[in-house]
Design a protein around this nucleic acid. Structure first.
Lengths: 205, 205, 205, 205
DNA sequence: CATGAATGAGTTTTCATTCAT
DNA sequence: AATGAATGAAAACTCATTCAT
């Protein structure tokens, strides 16, 4: 008897955790941490409640594991940022493009922001980890980019907190997208152009 | 001796709804809609569960009433914006100052944003009302300000979606404040200066 | 100042208990004892909950008072029965006519039967009183009528429990009316004729 | 040694619904629909509240399922009625005997009548179903029996609604039994004899 | 008398979690 | 590993009753 299904039972089993985390993501996005039932997640995977508890001890640990699971693409973003080359302006523009591509467009990273905002007080470690691992490094890189631009005479000397202002339009678009889900369509390109236009004019020496 | 605590029954009754809505705000902020127990709200007011139901039919209606209750200061913001005078740059700077004063600093409006993000899918009317009544008018006013500045030669001609980019730093600071609550202290003045500096440089003709 | 309302305040007050009992009857009929709220009764009278408690100590006592209130017409029935004259057959037919007029047609006595059946285990005294005061005397009178008819040679000698069988069709129609409320229309005259026809043929010597 | 109590999980599970419905019947009989607590039913089964909800979605659905559960013996009654043979008088007497055996004596069918009377307005479908499935067919059969008897010259020509009058004594006894529960003892045989005596005398040509 | 705000005990229903199979 | 029956702690909501005005 030829094995029709490409997945052996062992392979099937190896995928379970990821399957559960993917399902958990969808359910938690839809209803939030408290209102999501473990059974909803199980149903989405096509198993029963009990199975979830085979892999995760509590709903809380499942949530935290899910957060780690969807945070992975952030590492790519950081890696990509560090590989940029060109003038400071060019690198800045590319960095902003990366933000739009990874954060605004990637649903998982977008919803990660929603979890940080809405479940933050229930899972403070999640927020802190998120910032220590992603936001702070990104901000540091951006700051170094601005400093370098200033030193090279490419950018004018800028006040403190400038780095935050520089990425703000991407954050704002991310938030709007989160809020409107599908009810209003926002055009990424239009936003990106206005963003780059504003900050490059605002920064040039 | 002024009788401070001699509230008649009628006075007491007149204050109840506001008392409950204030308490509801605090509890909903702390735990979110689903995890907040009606009894927590009652305890905070110093009454029993039943009393809450004398004034509000369901937890859902209480939540919606609370949102309307805390949205009031937004009207002041809009009114103040329309009273601004001076050159376009001056009015733009003043408008941004208003945003920092009203939105970033006013805890209620700040948390309103959190509700919009975290309870939006449960209360879509809340989000829509919020945008129709506040965000859209504010945006329209801002856009007209920019258009006027361009026509008068005060601002350079700008791409679409520029208005959004212009207020973005305030939004971003609002979000950060929301996320860190008290764990990281952000200085409003520093942000405000960086913000104005960036956009005025970015806008001037 | 001419007194427009025919009722002085004192008269108004004197009517309150009856008003409340009438309202209570309607509400208890509609929803049963447990599901009826004291407030529903108050609303129907046009007063507030508190007023009900001015006149009746508890919901339970109100229910019992209501039962006594609607039982009054039964006394008329008994009085009328004792005033009948004519041959035994004539008096029997008249008695059955009285049953249809008073019990089947009078909504209050009809619903009294429903209360006896549905709230009987909660208010056993109600049932017992009902039988002692009304059913037993009626039955005794009927039995004496039959006995007299047998003695006079008007009726044939009948087995025990015959009296119950003789009134049964009226009971059955009462029950059907109760069950169908308005969903099926039963014609009293048709039932009455079949009833009299059956028992007179069944009884005559 | 036969293992009496060694129920496998599967067996246990298979019995649960019937166990719950039996317990529900007892509790609903005792206190009526509204006053019965789901927990009372659970206690009677020896499980906890939650278990009831594993098998029935709501108290309402549980009640309706219980009604269907106890209605089953009615089908036997109908089946038995259709199997009767003999002269019309014999079949009529046998039919009445069936009524006493199945309805008056079978506690479940008796209490079904109470539910129809007391919960009818809350569950109109229950009443309608009850009549469409049981009362109407029984009545139709009885009518055809009388018609046949008239045609064969066994019975005299009877007025409309005669069929109802013919079974009325059984209904009346059912109601009395319901009302007195155990407080007055009614002798079925005495009633049955009076009943048959009355209607056979009333019907014969 | 009448009111209606407030109470608190009670009831239905939900759901994370456990554990025997 | 997977199941799903069972649990029990909680939470929204109800309502008879009280009592200050």
């Amino acid at each position: 008897m030829p094995d029709m299904k490409k997945l052996t039972r062992a392979e099937q089993k190896a995928r379970r955790p990821a399957q559960i985390l993917d399902a958990a993501f969808e359910e938690f996005v839809e209803r939030g941490y408290v209102a999501t039932r473990v059974e909803d997640i199980a149903d989405r995977v096509g198993v029963t409640k009990g199975t979830i508890y085979v892999y995760f001890e509590t709903k809380e640990q499942l949530f935290e594991a899910m957060i780690r699971h969807i945070s992975v693409p952030f590492e790519d973003l950081l890696a990509s940022a560090h590989k940029l080359s060109g003038t400071c302006s060019e690198r800045l523009e590319s960095l902003i493009a990366l933000l739009y591509d990874h954060i605004v467009e990637n649903r998982r990273l977008r919803e990660l922001m929603r979890f940080v905002i809405s479940e933050g007080s229930r899972f403070p470690q999640v927020v802190d980890r998120h910032h220590e691992e992603f936001i702070d490094p990104l901000n540091a890189y951006l700051q170094s980019l601005i400093d370098e631009g200033v030193k090279h005479g490419e950018f004018r000397s800028a006040p403190a907190a400038f780095a935050d202002a520089v990425v703000a339009p991407a954050i704002a678009m991310l938030i709007f997208t989160l809020i409107f889900n599908d009810r209003r369509v926002l055009d990424k390109t239009t936003y990106f152009e206005a963003h780059v236009d504003l900050i490059l004019h605002g920064l040039v020496a």
